[in-house]
Amino acid sequence: MKLPSGILVLTVLSFATSCARKPASISALQPTAYGNAIVESSGDKQVAQIGATLHDPVVVQVNDDKGNAVTGALVEFSAASGVVFDPVSALTDSSGQVTTNVSLGGMSGRYELTASTFDKSHKPIEVKINETALGYQQTLGRQLNEKYCERCHNPESTVERVSNYDNLAVKPHPFNEGGTLNKFTDADLTAIISYGGPALNKSALMPAWGNTLSKAEIQGLIAYIRAVSDPPLHGSEATFKSN
């Protein structure tokens, strides 16, 4: 008599605990709608220091088969370990969007973030978002770029910095122009930065910086140029994807 009652108590207990744990193990958010597509709205291709919170949040949108925004779809973010999302999952708002703040991981390289949702048949659909984390060398390069290079190489003006790009008879390459800049080897870039455009039969409007910048600074600049190039130079950096 004693044994069966013990088993009964155990069964009830284990059932109770498994029930109690069930809501916790599934996300607290329950989708009220499902979409057919998920797209990135803004926040892609940002550059920040390792471990830093990206300047702009990442925004993704869930659409139905007609391309209209879907409200109440569950979006979950994932990435390599070390990347922090705030929030990590949410339901799309009235404009079909979810906004999350992203802090990158502790290693320099490219981070591939995944935003995923489910369609009506519970099939996962996802979109990849790419961000770049800068280590010491690339950060040094970024600082030098802001001081010396981007006034000409960045066509966009800001309130604080008027771009000189449009004033130049021969247009310089923006540093994210991977299609062009990836064809230059590190030695090419070192030569053109050190000795100016004519070193590679390019425009003399690009002056020689070899007497102004140190070797380490020029290497930092090249590291930065490689870090922001789009598409990335194959094999130059690590890419961290969600596991």
Partner: peptide, 14 residues
């Protein structure tokens, strides 16, 4: 430098 698997990555340049 392009290895993403730890603990095998090289140390970034400092």
């Amino acid at each position: 430098a392009n290895v993403s698997l730890q603990p095998y990555r090289n140390h970034p340049v400092i």
